[in-house]
Design a protein around this nucleic acid. Structure first.
Length: 281
DNA sequence: AGCTACTCCTGGTAGC
DNA sequence: TGCTACCAGGAGTAGC
């Protein structure tokens, strides 16, 4: 599903076609995609606005908007959740199925938010920081270092799997990359965060950063005909999965069958030999 | 504080 | 063939 690497890939691809463009009009097919704002107020907020910047924070694509004279007016925060996609098409191109929101641009193109399952959000916020400031550190940025990660792990008493999925703890990881990082660090998903010794915390830190960086290099993961970049190209990191979706198949490291359990309603994949069960939590 | 269950949605698929 | 049941999971919320 779209996690940090997929969102980063999408952000990079839509940046160029959006930068400097003015939104001339919007059409909203599914109002709840706006995340609580009415069609009317969404439309009046973004119509006439110009795209000042396109960047990523956690799993959000942030589209900063400004008035024609240059005053900032807020941002559209796009969250793809499970099935959201962004496309920039010629406005004359045939409508895509499952388009929930579309923004007509001043160069004849249209930004389309397509989302079969309707979980995604395309929200205008006058003060986007209200949402973004509540997020945990960016795992690939320099402010996130080994000392901080170790300290943060010790400050909580939670199982690693749900803790790493918590966006206020660390931003950008989802179900797939958490499983991959825990396997790389040889840590059991149910291990309690305050019982991870420093060397293992360092190993997990390295595993998270390496996994995410390599996935970005490969433009994310695509599978089940699910994820595609805006140009329709699949990413290729799914070929590197060590545990995710490999239930019953041999661990590449030790040969034992990968096991699947459910933790917090999430499918969780791990190797019972490489990631031994914690004793007493 | 941290856990579980539930909700939002739809397409795909397993099972009959 | 066609039906039903269930699964996928990001994140918000409620209740314990």
């Amino acid at each position: 599903m779209p996690e940090l690497p997929e969102v980063e890939t999408v952000t990079r691809l839509i940046r160029k076609p959006l930068l400097g463009r003015t939104i001339e009009g919007v059409s909203v097919q599914w109002e709840r995609t706006l995340g609580g704002t009415s069609r009317r107020s969404f439309s009046s907020a973004v119509r006439g606005a110009r795209v000042k910047a396109v960047w990523r924070r956690a799993k959000y694509i942030v589209i900063d908007l400004e008035r024609p004279r240059g005053e900032p007016i807020g941002a559209v925060l796009v969250h793809l959740r499970m099935t959201g996609r962004l496309h920039v098409d010629a406005a004359t191109e045939e409508a895509r199925d499952y388009t929930r929101v579309a923004c007509r641009l001043d160069n004849g193109n249209e930004l389309r938010f397509v989302d079969t399952r309707k979980f995604g959000r395309f929200r205008f916020l006058a003060r986007p920081d209200d949402v973004l400031e509540g997020l945990g550190p960016e795992p690939l940025e320099s402010g996130f270092d080994r000392d901080r990660f170790h300290r943060d792990l010790r400050a909580r008493r939670r199982m690693l799997k749900p803790l790493l999925l918590d966006q206020t703890f660390l931003a950008g990881l989802g179900n797939i990359y958490v499983d991959e990082a825990l396997h790389a660090a040889q840590l059991h998903p149910l291990r309690r965060s305050d019982r991870v010794p420093r060397p293992k915390a360092d190993a997990l830190y390295d595993a998270i950063r390496t996994t995410l960086a390599e996935a970005i290099e490969r433009e994310g993961s695509s599978f089940d005909t699910f994820y595609r970049t805006p140009e329709g190209q699949p990413g290729s990191y799914q070929d590197r999965f060590q545990v995710y979706g490999r239930t019953g198949e041999p661990c590449y490291r030790c040969g034992r069958a990968i096991r699947r359990i459910v933790v917090g309603q999430r499918g969780t994949h791990f190797c019972t030999r490489c990631q031994p069960a914690p004793r007493g939590g």
